[in-house]
């Protein structure tokens, strides 16, 4: 693909996912590998941290407790009584996406969330979780009846609105992170060394953390709306 007509500039190598290798003809993206790396790193970090918990927390334990408590507070504010119950799901999303969004500042690493496969997987899991939670809370009858409100002929609009949720949810995160990485790659081509640094600080750290917060809050909102 040579669409920018710039000499020696291949945007695809700089931004977005690239197939690292193939297993039985199925390409495996490098973003997937970085995502697995983040998962394993988080598991090892959690194991090391929870191995010797103390009543009077140390500095690191204190910081992680504050982070988890703030996630629980946000969840509690949007769905009463769900703070502790939703923590495994919501906390996983917040930690993984937050870390995925800011890992792009490290050299040679790409954001796993700059891959539509990754964000779509998260959007679909939130979609399935919220619908399953709604069926569990309201019963199958109440869940189906929810699509016929306020009138019966609103069914197609309600169905479309429900199906648009995971798409808009995942495209928002993907577009922000991928757009940022494209801009950083362009800046690194034109003004290498100087211009990418403030752009990385803006797109990878600030926008990345804000988008992780947005994704988490929207996930909570979708779950709480579906179960009402």
């Amino acid at each position: 693909m040579h669409f920018f007509y710039l000499a020696n500039f291949d945007i695809e190598a700089q931004a977005g996912p690239q197939a690292a290798f193939e297993i039985f003809g199925i390409p495996v993206n490098d973003t997937t590998l970085i995502g697995y790396g983040i998962t394993i790193g988080l598991i090892i970090f959690a194991r090391l941290l929870t191995r010797n918990l103390e009543i009077v927390p140390g500095r690191l334990q204190n910081a992680m407790e504050m982070l988890l408590e703030s996630i629980m507070d946000i969840t509690e504010g949007m769905m009463a009584g769900g703070g502790r119950k939703m923590l495994p799901f919501i906390g996983t999303i917040a930690l993984f996406i937050g870390l995925s969004n800011i890992i792009g500042v490290l050299p040679l690493l790409k954001n796993p969330t700059a891959d539509l496969n990754m964000t779509l997987a998260f959007g679909l899991s939130v979609f399935i979780f919220s619908n399953a939670y709604a069926i569990k809370n309201k019963g199958l009858g109440g869940y189906v009846k929810g699509f016929f409100e306020p009138m019966a002929f609103m069914l197609p609009i309600n169905l479309l609105g429900e199906l648009a949720k995971p798409i808009s949810h995942s495209f928002r995160l993907f577009g922000n992170v991928f757009g940022g990485s494209v801009l950083i790659a362009l800046a690194a081509y034109f003004v290498p060394g100087i211009l990418p640094v403030p752009l990385m600080a803006w797109f990878d750290i600030f926008i990345g953390l804000v988008q992780a917060l947005i994704f988490t809050m929207l996930a909570i909102a979708y779950i709480s709306i579906a179960s009402e």
Partner: peptide
């Protein structure tokens, strides 16, 4: 997000 969709 609408701007982001257009960008995508």
């Amino acid at each position: 997000s609408t701007g982001i969709y257009a960008f995508v």
